[in-house]
Design a protein around this nucleic acid. Structure first.
Lengths: 343, 343
DNA sequence: TTGTATGCGTTATCAT
DNA sequence: ATGATAACGCATACAA
C-alpha cells in the first residue's frame, strides 16, 4: 500500500505539500502530485487519518433486525445519503434486545462519528449511553424517553391510525379488533391511542376485550387473531399495528378460511411487499420507508457537520391505501363504502 | 475519551503493561488494571490500533441492493457471525452497477480486513480490483469469472431448477414458459440451463419462443409474462428465475385475472415473505438465506485468521416447496399430480 | 514480568 | 507556498 511519503517522493515534494493538495489547498505542483497519486493508486490511510483528526468518517447504524424489510429499506436510505457524503456505514443488529443495544452503543461509540439508531424500546440506559457517547445521534421511528435530546425521524402514526379508523367507521364498523404493538415503543403507543381515540370521538368507543397488546411479531398477530375469532361475538374488522403483526393475523385468517372482507375486514399499518397481490389485495396505511432512511442520513450528515444546530424532529407523512381487504360492515348498504384506490 | 495512558496512570503501571493485559497476557497487577479500565470506561482507540497493527477489524460487505429482502437476510447472517468474532460490518450498496461496485472495492480496500461481495455481474474489473485489494474475499451467490480465486458461498441452483422442472413434468406440462435472469450472472445461467436441460432430457424440449431472458427485475417478470400471455398458444406453466421476476409475473397474472393453477401453473425460484398467503399459495424453490449469510460470515472470519488455507466453495441445498400454484396440465388426470407439501 | 522507546500514516503548527 | 517536525493512541522490540 502506497503512503503519502511515496507520493511525496515520486512527485518531488514534501509530504506536507501532498497533504495540503489532498485537503484541497492550492499548491504549485498540483499536477505532478495528482499524477503521482494516480500512478501509485494512493489512498489515504483511514486509520492514520482517524487517529490524527479524531474523526473516523464512520456512522454506526443500530437496528433491531436487519432482515426485517422495513429496516432494510431504512438502512438502504441511510447508506445512499451517507455514502454520497463520504461517510461509511457500520451496521449492527441489536437483535431486539435492549441489553445488546446498550453493548453496541458502548463498543461502537469510540469508533464512530455519529449514530443512527432504531431503538428496541424506550430504554433509559440506551439513552444515557448515547449521551455519554458524545457524538451526534439520530433516532428513527422510535424514541428514547419523553424529553427530546436527539434529532428524530418519525412518521405521523396518529394521522395514519385516524385515517384507518375513519375508513372503518365510514364502512359502518363499530365492533373492531385492534392488534397493537407494545406500549413501550412510540409507534405502538401512538398507533393504538389514535385509533382508539378516533372511535371514541365518533361516539363508538371500542370494546376493550377486542384490544390485544403484544410485541411487533407474527406470533402476536396470529395468536391474538385466533383469540378474537374464538370470541362469542368476533369483531367485523381488525386493525394490525405493524407489518409482522399483520402477517401473523393474515396467516390465521387464511388457516381459518375466513372470507375477507365479506366476513372480516382487515387493515394493516405498514405496506407489505406483496400486499397488492393478496386475495383480496390488502388495505394498508403506508409510508415511504426509503425516504425515512434518507431523511435520517441527511440529518446525521448535517448534525456531524454542525453539532451546535438546534434539535430537529422530522415527521414524515403516511398514506391510506384502500385496496380490497376492507368492505362494509354486515348490514351496511354497500353504497356507503368508499371507492377503492387501486395501486 | 480515556486513553491507555490514563489507565496506566490510574493503575500505577506503564502503558505497555496495560497493553499486554488487554492482549490477554498475564501481568502482575491485572486486577488494578481491570479496575482502572472499568472506572474510566476505557475502550481502545480503533484508529490507533488499526494504524499500529495494520488491521482494522472491519469487513466490507458489498451488495447490489440493500433493500432486497434476500440481500437483507444475507447481511443479517453475515453480521451475526462477524459481530460474534469482533469484526464490524461496513455496508455498501453497488446499486446494481458494476462501475459503482468497482469504485467501492477500490475505496474500501485500504480500510477493511476482508470483503464479502455479492457481485452485480461477472466483471473482470471487479475481480482484479478484489485481487489487488490483497485482502481475503468471500463471494456470495454469484461469481466473478470461471476460474475460482476466492472463497464462495453458493446454492445448488441446478438441483433446484431440476426439481422445479421435474415437478412440472410430473404434472404433465410440456409447454412451459421460462422467465430467466441474466446469463451474465451465475444464478441466472445455472437456473436457466438446468431447467431447460431437464425438459430436454425428459424428451420434451422447451419451445425457445417461450424462453425470455432479462434482468432480475419485476419489470422483466411483468413484461415477459405479458408477452407470453399474448402468444397465440401461451404456455400452461411458467417458471420464474428469482423473487423479483416472480413478483412482476404474478402482478401481470393478477391484472389479467388468469386463474392459477387452473389456467396457468406458476413456480418461482426463491421464497417470498408472503408466498404462503397468496391465493393460491405459491410453489417455490426455497433456500435458507440467513444461513447463506452465516456461512459467508464464517468463511471470511476463517480466511482472515488463516489466509493460506485452500480455497473453499460451499454449496448450500435448496428445497422444492409445493404449495398450490402448480397443478396438472390441462387434459391431465388430476390423479397424477403430486401431493402438496403444506407449509 | 516490567518499563522505555520507536514507529505506524496522517494532519497541523511553526518557521522559512 | 513550502518543508521539517510534533503528536494522535497504540503495540511491540528491546533492555532490564
Amino acid at each position: 500500500m502506497a503512503t503519502i511519503k511515496d507520493v511525496a517522493c515520486s512527485a518531488g515534494v514534501s509530504i506536507a505539500t501532498v497533504s495540503r493538495h489532498i485537503a484541497g489547498e492550492s499548491v504549485r505542483r498540483a499536477d505532478d502530485i495528482a499524477r503521482a497519486i494516480e500512478a501509485l493508486n494512493y489512498r489515504p490511510n483511514e486509520s492514520a487519518r482517524g487517529l490524527r483528526r479524531g474523526r473516523t468518517n464512520l456512522v454506526g447504524v443500530i437496528v433491531p433486525d436487519i432482515s426485517n424489510p422495513y429496516f432494510a429499506a431504512v438502512i438502504g436510505g441511510i447508506e445512499s445519503v451517507c455514502n454520497a457524503h463520504g461517510l461509511r456505514i457500520l451496521i449492527a443488529s441489536s437483535a431486539e434486545s435492549t441489553d445488546q443495544e446498550l453493548d453496541l452503543i458502548g463498543s461502537l461509540a469510540p469508533t464512530v462519528d455519529g449514530f443512527v439508531v432504531v431503538p428496541v424500546a424506550e430504554s433509559a440506559a440506551s439513552r444515557s449511553a448515547l449521551v455519554d457517547a458524545a457524538v451526534p445521534v439520530v433516532l428513527v421511528d422510535r424514541t428514547l424517553g419523553a424529553t427530546q435530546v436527539f434529532d428524530q425521524v418519525r412518521i405521523d402514526n396518529a394521522r395514519g391510525s385516524r385515517a384507518a379508523a375513519r375508513h372503518l367507521l365510514d364502512l359502518g364498523h363499530t365492533r373492531v379488533g385492534v392488534l397493537s404493538g407494545p406500549a413501550s415503543a412510540l409507534p405502538g403507543r401512538e398507533r393504538h391511542d389514535a385509533f382508539v381515540a378516533e372511535f371514541a370521538a365518533a361516539g363508538a368507543p371500542l370494546d376493550p376485550s377486542l384490544v390485544m397488546h403484544g410485541d411487533f411479531t407474527r406470533t402476536h398477530g396470529r395468536n391474538s387473531m385466533r383469540n378474537l375469532l374464538a370470541l362469542a361475538e368476533p369483531p367485523t374488522a381488525v386493525f394490525a399495528g405493524n407489518n409482522l403483526i399483520a402477517q401473523g393475523a393474515l396467516q390465521e385468517l387464511r388457516v381459518r378460511e375466513i372470507e375477507v372482507p365479506t366476513h372480516m375486514s382487515f387493515i394493516g399499518f405498514d405496506d407489505l411487499d406483496l400486499a397488492a397481490l393478496l386475495t383480496p389485495p390488502l388495505t394498508v396505511v403506508a409510508r415511504d420507508t426509503a425516504l425515512e432512511g434518507q431523511s435520517a442520513g441527511e440529518l446525521i450528515v448535517r448534525r456531524i457537520a454542525e453539532p451546535q444546530r438546534g434539535l430537529i424532529t422530522e415527521v414524515l407523512p403516511v398514506e391510506l391505501i384502500v385496496r380490497g381487504s376492507t368492505g362494509p360492515a354486515p348490514g351496511q348498504h354497500s353504497l356507503t363504502h368508499p371507492q377503492p384506490t387501486h395501486r
